[in-house]
Design a protein around this nucleic acid. Structure first.
Length: 384
RNA sequence: GGAGGGGUAGCGAAGUGGCCAAACGCAGAUGACUGUAAAUCAUUUCCCAUCGGGUUCGGCGGUUCAAAUCCGUCCCCCUCCA
């Protein structure tokens, strides 16, 4: 069996734990290079981070980027990607790539689905085709795509779910993880197990401990950012992390708001991914050191300042809010590109600062400063 | 000069006696977006205001319990004929 915790082509090196907090600084060694953690991974569902070129992503300091098994399965299909030399060559991204298993799509975009022990039957969102995804099928697809890091096929249950439902779901997802592990054959791909269990500590610990016993090269925390409030999410993270081995990376799936990244890092999370920065950028919302900026707002009509005076991204170096607002209102693609680039760079730079702070044993102070700056501790704050 | 059509909120456009402060689209304003079915979604745009009230449908004058809707008249626009 290949793809277990001793995978020779992939490893995690824990370099330093912040003396103030449980935050970890580490390095992920992958077949496509080493990347430092904690890190933020931009999402490129369809083998493209919408509007951004790989060159721009790398310029913004990207390490790992994501793509999606379900979407690539439907288009262009595994044969095309495999024939074209795998995902890296196909999309011309030289760095590490991670693919999600498709589990999330099955549970997020198909209301009529049938879950059985074997897998999930559901409908294509494109044409209604009857589809069937199983742990083995997901691995087979991900093997064909060739990402450096791949995910177990899991169920991402709704929040809230009853304890009874969550229990049987968690147990089945564990069995699926084992099946995926058995099916996985590519030594250049690290298969992560995914912790589920909602906000039930007993189920989170069952999930995490069982996965840890299976010895994966990394562990994902799933089932978060599905409608629960922030304190609940943080509790879910606590319930999961405390049962995971310290010598393997922890990936908090689908989390990318500033406050949640900070809280995750404080709890020992190493990897984050999220569509948030790119999606809200396309919709005109920017993450800045001063707080959130909606570039469409009339107050920026003649504002010659950059989005964020503290930002070093190409957008902030060269373009005014007034121009970006103009592009946004005219629905110009160039505007979406510039705004996406800024938000991506903002989060990546945030993680650079986080890594620095951890290495200097001051992440607690760094975190507290940002909480104060953004008012995350103020009543009514939703974070962002 | 003759015949016909038309003037509705920032623009376009429904409505042709009461359920109309007036559909809908655009434009404007504000907010949202968390393992991407997302260039999407929500709210809002006559005036004052919390309920609620006050002024609107080219102008003026009528009919009616009630008019954007019916009548008279005036102004303006478009098409065709001379």
């Amino acid at each position: 069996m290949i793809g277990n915790g001793d995978n020779m082509n992939f490893s995690y090196e824990l370099k330093h734990v912040c003396a103030q907090t449980g935050a970890r600084y580490g390095v992920l060694h992958t077949p496509h290079g080493d990347v430092e953690t904690p890190m933020f991974m931009p999402v490129g569902t369809l083998a493209t981070v919408k509007y951004l070129s790989p060159e721009e992503l790398l310029g913004a300091g990207s390490g790992v980027i994501l793509s999606n098994t379900y979407h690539l399965w439907l288009r262009p299909g595994p044969n095309v990607i495999a024939t074209m030399g795998g995902l890296h060559r196909f999309m011309n991204y030289p760095g590490p790539i991670l693919t999600d298993s498709g589990g999330f799509q099955v549970f997020s975009l198909s209301e009529k689905r049938k879950i059985t022990e074997e897998g999930v039957e559901f409908r294509s969102h494109l044409n209604g085709d009857r589809l069937f995804l199983s742990p083995e099928k997901s691995i087979e697809l991900q093997n064909a795509f060739g990402a450096d890091i791949i995910m177990s096929f899991d169920e991402c249950p709704a929040y809230p779910s009853t304890y009874e439902y969550m229990k049987q779901s968690v147990e089945r997802t564990l069995r699926w993880a084992k099946r995926g592990q058995d099916a996985h054959q590519n030594p250049n791909q690290a298969l992560f197990g995914i912790v589920q269990g909602g906000d039930y500590e007993g189920l989170r610990s069952l999930s995490a401990q069982s996965l840890a016993e299976m010895d994966f090269p990394g562990y994902s925390i799933g089932g978060t950012s599905v409608g629960e409030d922030k304190p609940t999410m943080y509790r879910m993270i606590d319930y999961s992390v405390r049962y995971l081995p310290t010598n393997k990376p922890r990936y908090l799936m689908g989390v990318g708001s500033i406050d949640a990244i900070l809280e995750g890092v404080a709890r020992g999370i190493d990897m984050f991914d999220c569509v948030l920065p790119t999606r809200i950028a396309r919709h005109g919302a920017l993450m800045t050191s001063q707080g959130r900026v909606n570039i469409r707002d009339a107050q920026y009509e003649m504002d010659e300042r950059p989005i964020d005076p503290e930002c070093d991204c190409e957008t902030c170096k060269h373009y005014s809010r007034a121009y970006l607002r103009h592009l946004y209102k005219c629905e110009e693609g160039f505007g979406k590109r510039l705004l996406s680039l800024h938000n991506i760079r903002f989060l990546i730079r945030l993680t650079e600062q986080i890594r620095q702070a951890i290495q200097e044993d001051r992440f607690g102070d760094f975190h507290a400063d940002l909480v104060r700056r953004y008012g995350f501790d103020q009543p009514g704050s939703r974070g962002f």
